[in-house]
C-alpha cells in the first residue's frame, strides 16, 4: 500500500452544533483518524515538486504481490 507518514495527522475532533449534549456527541462525532491525501485533491497545497515526487513514488512504485521482494 502506498503510505506516507504524516506529522500533521493528529486527531481533530469537531464539536457538534450548539445545543447538542453528551448523547449527541456520542452519536454525531466526526473525528479524523487519518487525513489521507486530500490535500493533493485539486492540486491545492501539493507542496514542492520534490515532496510530490516522493509521494508519487511511494504510491506508484510498489512491489508486485505475487512473488517478489518488499520494495
Amino acid at each position: 500500500m502506498p503510505r506516507f507518514k504524516s506529522p500533521s495527522a493528529t486527531p481533530s475532533g469537531t464539536a457538534p452544533p450548539t445545543g447538542a449534549g453528551k448523547e449527541a456527541a456520542k452519536t454525531d462525532l466526526v473525528i479524523d483518524i487519518s487525513e489521507g491525501v486530500t490535500e493533493l485533491l485539486g492540486l491545492r497545497g501539493a507542496g514542492t515538486v520534490s515532496q510530490l515526487k516522493e509521494i508519487v513514488a511511494d504510491c506508484c512504485l510498489q512491489a508486485c504481490d505475487c512473488c517478489l521482494q518488499i520494495s
Binding site: 502506498p2 503510505r3 506516507f4 504524516s6 493528529t10 487519518s34 509521494i55 504510491c59 510498489q62 508486485c64
Partner: peptide, 15 residues
C-alpha cells in the same frame, strides 16, 4: 491509517 499514516489511491498495481 489506524496509526495516523496516510494512504493514497493505487493507480498502478505493480511493476
Amino acid at each position: 491509517l489506524s496509526r495516523g499514516g496516510r494512504v493514497g489511491p493505487v493507480f498502478w498495481r505493480c511493476e
